[in-house]
Design a protein around this nucleic acid. Sequence first.
DNA 1: CTGACTGCAAACGTTTTGCACGGTA
DNA 2: TACCGTGCAAAACGTTTGCAGTCAG
Lengths: 135, 135
Amino acid sequence: MMNCTTLLKEYNLKVTPQRVAIVEELYKNGHMNIDDLYKKLLSKFPSISLATIYKNVNAMIEKVFLNEVKIPNSKSVYELVKEEHSHLVCSSCGKIEDIDLSIGSLVEEATASKNYKIQEASVVFTGLCPTCSNK
Amino acid sequence: MMNCTTLLKEYNLKVTPQRVAIVEELYKNGHMNIDDLYKKLLSKFPSISLATIYKNVNAMIEKVFLNEVKIPNSKSVYELVKEEHSHLVCSSCGKIEDIDLSIGSLVEEATASKNYKIQEASVVFTGLCPTCSNK
DNA sequence: CTGACTGCAAACGTTTTGCACGGTA
DNA sequence: TACCGTGCAAAACGTTTGCAGTCAG
């Protein structure tokens, strides 16, 4: 188990039980949408408010501690910020996985052909995960 | 100017002046969000309703005539469906451009490492466009 | 002529805000 | 203690729906 308290402090976020729980859940589950988070936290904090989830998620995004990932045909999910990576979404079961892809050459391609100074890349592949494609 | 009427018919969409205007605008501007469309059409149809925009955009997505593009840190935009391509977004002026990138090797990489049967790819790069990076 | 589309208003789901209270540092 | 976070309720948004009238085929 990671040390959520220290982590929150490093990002200048006050440590509250609710915030610790959010970080723990995201660490455990990788990617969660607002509802996932709300339902998970409800079992630990029966009177937690959806507004608290929103406020905290937004605060954490502000501090660049969380990252919002927009998924085609589905709700945004949130993840702890880490090294750049891409995402794989299963169109059947909805599972989301991180994947390390070498997008360097793509970035160069884009730079060369359109002269953009690329700052960020959002790469999301949708397809059938191994489990679902064997059904 | 393209033939919007024929195009709409090909996709089994009844031809109305509002729909023709939506297609014309998207053809002209490439990518527009709901508000862009609404404002543009308001000048042609002073009493058009936002609901009409939504209904038509959704109908066109249903027929796979339009495509929604989710953009990090900004609203979704819509475009006419065409060959697969990626997107370049300027983080300063908001401009969105199509770009043809060879993502084939990435798809293979993902297939090989995670065993997914990839169906769709969403690649959006954010950066400074040539104009904005010279300011 | 029939069914589909439009515009309006109401409904809906999601996200944000204001406020009183309680907890963190 | 001072400020920030929480939970609640209300407000604000964005999007969808139902309906009566109109239009396309």
